[in-house]
């Protein structure tokens, strides 16, 4: 199918982009990598009057070292984040998640910030980014502001990024030496996850000293499995201990029911996948 007509703007700076968004008002749509937006436009599920393409803003691309954190530009492609040695070293769970995100072609075009701003609860980046406690930089006409991961995802396809604003970069604290794993459950490879679990684990002498666990598609936003995290702290990295801690993975979740499984089944999957993710992250 063919999208409806729209005006197209391709600014080269964030300022120009913000101006274009302001002019476009509520009918403006931001085009990042376009891997979710273009199908929406093609099926005419959304008919924006203006599309603001961020693809020519070079300053939004790349990963940089910022002391105790790494900073990922919103327009960095999944593929570039995947290959980035800083990410691999300091946020291993992200590398793991991106490896399983969509397919190679989509990873070449799709962007880190675009996927997070789209906020599909079945998207693969929300859970690890949430688990790692990232900070989101959002630019608006009045300047930039930062939002913590816990406050970023508000609802289905809804984030703290307001109309007229742009997500510009994502700051991720370094988890150097932590193990990371993304355990994703699908029926066929090109599907969004039915449920997935992101786990980052710090192990010291066989004991899990700290753990961070995020859940994909267990509610209208990515979720943090805090009760699991708490239960894991101080436990040995053994199947038995992790199994016990993971049993509470679905607590407080409100997973959907759809073609791939009902809410009950998803709650069950969350516990199994959490155990597997944590054990894999712990190298056990």
């Amino acid at each position: 199918m063919i999208p409806a007509q729209f005006e197209y703007v391709a600014p080269t700076t964030v300022e120009e982009a913000l101006t274009a968004l302001a002019e476009g008002g509520e009918d403006a749509k931001v085009l990042a990598g376009g891997q979710s937006l273009l199908p929406v436009l093609r099926m005419r599920l959304n008919v924006p009057s203006v599309v603001v393409d961020l693809g020519r803003i070079d300053s939004l691309r790349g990963v940089r070292d910022d002391g105790d954190a790494i900073v990922v530009g919103a327009m960095t492609t999944h593929s570039d984040v995947f290959h980035d040695p800083l990410v691999r070293e300091h946020a291993a769970v992200l590398t793991e998640a991106i490896e399983q995100l969509a397919d190679p072609q989509v990873r070449h075009r799709g962007t880190f910030g675009g996927a997070l701003a789209h906020a599909d609860p079945a998207g693969d980046l929300g859970a690890p980014v949430l688990a790692l406690g990232a900070t989101f930089t959002i630019a608006g006409q009045g300047g930039t502001r930062t939002v913590e991961a816990d406050d970023f995802f508000e609802d289905l396809f809804t984030t703290a990024v307001q109309e007229g604003e742009l997500l510009t970069e994502i700051r991720i604290p370094k988890y150097t030496g932590w193990g990371g794993h993304y355990e994703k459950f699908v029926r066929v490879a090109h599907q969004w996850p039915i449920v997935a679990v992101a786990a980052a684990v710090k192990v010291d002498g066989g004991t899990i000293t700290e753990a961070r666990v995020g859940l994909t598609n267990m509610g209208s936003t990515p979720l943090r499995a805090r009760s699991v995290e708490q239960a894991l702290a101080g436990q040995p990295a053994t199947d038995e201990a992790v199994r016990a801690a993971a049993a509470s993975a679905a607590e407080g979740t409100n997973p959907p029911s759809d073609l791939n499984g009902d809410a009950d089944y998803r709650r069950h999957l969350a516990t199994v996948l959490t155990r597997r993710a944590v054990l894999a992250a712990a190298g056990a």
Partner: peptide, 17 residues
């Protein structure tokens, strides 16, 4: 179950809830 995940259809939000 006869519902799909709403990846593209943002209008589907209500159905999913």
């Amino acid at each position: 179950e006869n519902a799909a995940m709403p990846h593209f259809d943002e209008a589907d939000v209500a159905d999913r809830t």
